[in-house]
Amino acid sequence: MSRIEGYIPTDDEIRTLLEKLDTEAEQSGYHLNPDREFVSFLMEGLLVNQKRFGYLSCPCRLASGDIEDDRDMICPCDYRDPDLDEFGACYCSLYVTEKVLRGEQKAGSIPERRPNREEREAVRKKKQAGPPEGVKVGLPYPVWRCKVCGYLAARDTPPEVCPICKASKERFERFM
């Protein structure tokens, strides 16, 4: 597949995506980087990836084009929350903590937390439909965990969309 499409997102498309992500972030206690010029460039990258792959793959990581392998880095990625905790910003610096937002902490280029291909494959192979090993519970419902934000839902199946971070159903794992 050719990755060169000559597609350049319009200012309107960039603004629309930025507004959507900003609203969703603020509604659930997250914040976008206040550097709008920097963030607009990331929106452009996300839109290009949406066009290339059909999903908002992280603009700062090389996507494979295989959604099964790229799912953990669909924005917001599975690594955003631990990176916010440790560094005050996600890998791209699209999302930042309140401290960074208030200018009390500086967000910089941070180390990559995402496991390499072999490690990811090993984790996927272990993925189970049932509860994690060693967990024996007599609950009336299974519990599903959103891998993006940690939201837990006790119901027969995961919700279509995470009510907290808007991640899709596929990003839930069986927790209990």
Partner: peptide, 10 residues
Amino acid sequence: ALSTCGWCRK
């Protein structure tokens, strides 16, 4: 680099 990455651009 990646053409879409903010830190690469910086």
